[in-house]
Amino acid sequence: MKEVGKRLKALRESIGISQVKMAETIGSTQSSVNRYENGQSTPPVELFRRYADYFDVSLDYIFARTDKPQGVTYEFKPKAAPEREEMRRFIEMCFDPQSPMNEKLKETLLRMMEGEA
């Protein structure tokens, strides 16, 4: 938890607020924030969420799984299941082939269904 504490401290210091102000912001105490930052204590999950929301960073960043504040250490790409192929055929049938937006709408819907959008 030392690395997590370093991230929490660096985030707080990056905007120049005190531990007291940070504690008020996330609904904790100054002594707790100090223990979190020094790796002596682990915040509850809800406080991690509050840190992430307040600083607009991902939990992956806070947990030092990535150095990119926006996070995402992997891309979720589900495998095509048989029911997905059935859904793909259904989508094909739903669009008017004469519509100029037919292909774009269909592709967008298929990407959304596959988790790519």
Rank of each mutant, 00 (worst) to 15 (best):
V57A: 02
S99R: 06
T42D: 12
R89V: 13
L47R: 14
T42K: 14
F48C: 03
S18L: 08
E75S: 10
E37M: 05
E107Y: 12
G115S: 02
S28N: 09
A10P: 01
N38Q: 14
K2A: 09
I62M: 03
G27V: 06
T73K: 08
D53E: 13
T25P: 02
S41I: 05
K77T: 15
K77Y: 10
T73I: 11
I15Q: 03
A52L: 04
M22G: 01
K6P: 02
P69S: 00
V4C: 08
G27F: 02
S99V: 01
T108R: 11
N34V: 09
L8D: 00
R88L: 12
R88F: 12
V45W: 10
N102Y: 11
K9R: 14
F76D: 06
E86W: 00
R12C: 06
A52W: 02
E24N: 12
V33K: 03
V4M: 07
F90V: 05
T108G: 11
S14C: 01
K21E: 14
M1K: 08
S99C: 11
E83A: 05
G39R: 04
G71K: 04
R111S: 04
F48S: 03
Q98N: 15
T29R: 04
Y51T: 02
K6W: 04
E24M: 11
K79P: 07
Y61L: 00
K2N: 12
E86F: 10
R50W: 01
M1V: 08
S31K: 08
E24T: 05
G16D: 11
L11D: 00
G71D: 05
F76R: 04
A52K: 00
M87Y: 15
E13K: 12
S32P: 03
R65V: 06
A81Q: 15
F55Y: 14
P69F: 03
A80R: 10
C94N: 07
T25D: 08
S31F: 03
T42R: 10
P69G: 07
Y54E: 02
I17H: 00
Q98C: 06
L8H: 09
A23H: 01
F76V: 14
E86I: 15
T66C: 01
V33E: 05
A23T: 03
C94A: 11
E116H: 06
C94Q: 14
Y36L: 02
E114M: 13
R84H: 15
V45N: 11
A80P: 05
F90H: 13
E24K: 14
L105P: 00
A52G: 00
